[in-house]
Design a protein around this nucleic acid. Structure first.
Lengths: 193, 193
DNA sequence: ATAATTCTTGACTAATCGTTCCAGAAAGGA
DNA sequence: TCCTTTCTGGAACGATTAGTCAAGAATTAT
């Protein structure tokens, strides 16, 4: 009956995510998106609706792909404190790398749009809850294995860690001073002792 | 010889700051700025140059006025820990207020522009250094007065506190759940014990 | 082959963007 | 009063924006 799609939807979405990630919502033009996605302008509108819907889809993809990638270190066996240190150091190393400092896409979206776009705020809340949960599970395991003291409010600590991760990524957009970022990480992780 | 300016430059700049603060750089149009500033379009260009220069001037004003306002609690006599708690709780209360959640203007600027605008990154660095210094002075006083243990790297703690403040303000853009924000504050301040 | 469907292409809206220009009103000093 | 300067308002600039339309090429199933 009909012709098939000639491009891979997920791949195009991934490319769109990269544009939104490094440019933000407002500054990313549809022309730019079309170019980087490697698809036709019309295909973009046919497949994703409009710019805003594409942005929300990109946020979903970020959470599913990049979020999972970042937090999976917490699922691996071994000391939880070490895993958390690795998580934070991954962020630092990535920030100090040669690429452009685009921070956390979800954090950027929160900063730019969450205050005036309900859908974005909900995505940000969802990501926050998922990350909090991943951190909480890791902390629970640490408690169970005697690595973390029993008297702690682990829910609060998980929320704190997510907030710190966001603060760190924001700071890494302003400075490339390794010492500064490592100071932040060191003190942050000291709450686990 | 000539006519006087009929508007107050600082007042107009304050208004411009408010627009940029709640809308961001890209989403704030010159028309919107003109309207809220209460001055003529031409006067805006005559007085501030262009939109980007106005934005940078607004960042300067934010640091001088709002930054000073927020951190002055640290200069007041009394226990340093209590002052720090007040600082963080001010942020939480402000976030939970009825107004729109615009977060920290400097944080927003960092997130939106620091990655691709050198001038913005420098302003963000400057603000960061100033805040770090204010926090560091407070911590030093706490140490001198025996409130804070002697073995701590206070420079690192000051950096950590600024990062946490930014993380907190970002989270407050996504959620209005008081418990979540207070969890973050409580754990953050626990590093001082 | 034929018909149905989709992809591709580029031109095309209508609106908005930041910015500039211009003419007239207002206000100060001489 | 007269000259100079600035403020004001609106019109206009060219560029860019998000989004649409239409026509032809390509690919499928019948």
């Amino acid at each position: 009956m009909a012709r098939h799609k000639e491009f891979d939807r997920d791949e195009a979405l991934q490319r769109a995510m990269e544009v939104f990630w490094s440019r933000g919502y407002e500054a990313a033009s549809v022309g730019e998106l079309v170019k980087h996605m490697g698809i036709n302008r019309q295909s973009l509108y046919d497949t994703f609706g409009d710019k805003h819907a594409l942005y929300l889809a990109a946020l979903d993809r970020y959470r599913e792909v990049e979020g999972r990638k970042l937090f999976e270190v917490l699922e691996r066996p071994g000391p939880v404190k070490r895993a958390l240190r690795q998580l934070f150091e991954t962020v630092v190393e990535h920030s100090l790398g040669e690429g452009d400092r685009r921070g956390c896409f979800m954090g950027n979206a929160t900063s730019e749009l969450a205050g005036r776009c309900r859908a974005t705020a909900e995505k940000a809340c969802g990501q926050m809850a998922a990350a909090e949960e991943a951190l909480y599970r890791a902390l629970l395991r640490g408690k169970r294995e005697g690595e973390i003291g029993a008297g702690r409010d682990l829910r609060a600590v998980a929320r704190f860690l997510y907030s710190s991760l966001q603060g760190l990524q924001l700071m890494s957009k302003a400075t490339r001073d390794r010492k500064t970022l490592e100071d932040v990480v060191r003190v942050t992780l000291s709450v686990l002792d």
